[in-house]
Amino acid sequence: MILWKDRRQLVLEAIAGGLLILLPFYAGEYTVTTFVRIIYFGFLALSVGMLIGQAGMISLTQTAFFGLAGYVIGLLGAERDMPFPWRDLVAIGAVLVMALTFGLIAMRTHKIVFLMITLAFGQICWAFAQQNTSLLHGWAGIRGIRPPTIGGINFNQTSNFYWASLLIFALGIFVLWLLAKSPFGLALNGIRENPRRMAALGYPVYWIRVVAFLIAAVYAGVGGILATYNTGIITPTTIHLSRTIWVLLMVILGGATYFWGPVVGTAIAVWLDVLISQGTVRYNTVIGVIFVMIVLFLPEGVLSIADSLGEGGSLSPLRRLLDRKIADKR
């Protein structure tokens, strides 16, 4: 949760930041595109990870918000020529409306029921996108979506688009960091730990959870907008359940209870995907095995390595959450 602990770390972060900013000057276009993918999936992972880590809610609807934003951009931008930034704002607005609708229902539930209801929401969105041919063109989706040109800067160019994405990502991470430190963030942590006590203290637990769900949905939506601009296409595959599971795995891979966990997990997962698929067509099997190994040996995520070097850690909230889930099922 701490951005920098000391001067040395500050220097390291400055170097990392510099390397990221200068990336298009020393890396090939494919590498830059891969980083763009890390950024938009990173937004989605932050969305999922914030709900798990801060609020103790495992939501399987976040990918639907990602896709919804993409579809709105496609429908309004590519098909109806609505200019930037209006289509983007409408996309975020649509995400907020859908998140509020789902949130008002889902936040009445907890734990396993919450998981199931968010799974149902996600599946409804996917089924609708796939079966609706009049508006969303079924499985074919919407094609030919291009990023805008703003103030003479053409964001169709990979490096420009990368810089814009990087800036938005940095901003998003900074805001999330502020949120985590705020009274709202602490209240969310309280709800994660003991919702009944929070209610007894007089906190509006239901509304705090709804607001957290809205914020997380916006992060997924921003990721969806960037993804759609980058790939130029939005199809039901984008919001398929396998994508949802993949994002969940990325978050667990990095460490859901760590602030940087979702980002680190995304970076590792996307690069694994790229590197292993170059070597074998059975890359999904290899990635699956790697995931199993990580869950077995680093159940609290890759970032727990750094932690266990520092101190003898205790059970993470996520681990306890999952343990409790298993206990609930019995």
């Binding site: 805001v175 502020l178 949120l179 705020s182 009274p183 709202f184 602490l186 209240a187 942590n189 309280g190 994660r192 730990e193 003991n194 009944r196 006590r197 929070m198 007894a200 203290l201 007089g202 906190y203 509006p204 705090i208 607001v211 909230p317 306890r320």
Partner: peptide, 27 residues
């Protein structure tokens, strides 16, 4: 009925802030 993974200070703060309308201060 405590918040086990939070610190003593955070627990007490949540109790102290309970009626202060702090929960929707974000930044």
């Amino acid at each position: 009925q405590l918040f086990l993974n939070l610190t003593v200070e955070e627990n007490l703060f949540l109790a102290a802030a309970a009626d202060q309308g702090m929960e929707f201060h974000f930044l």
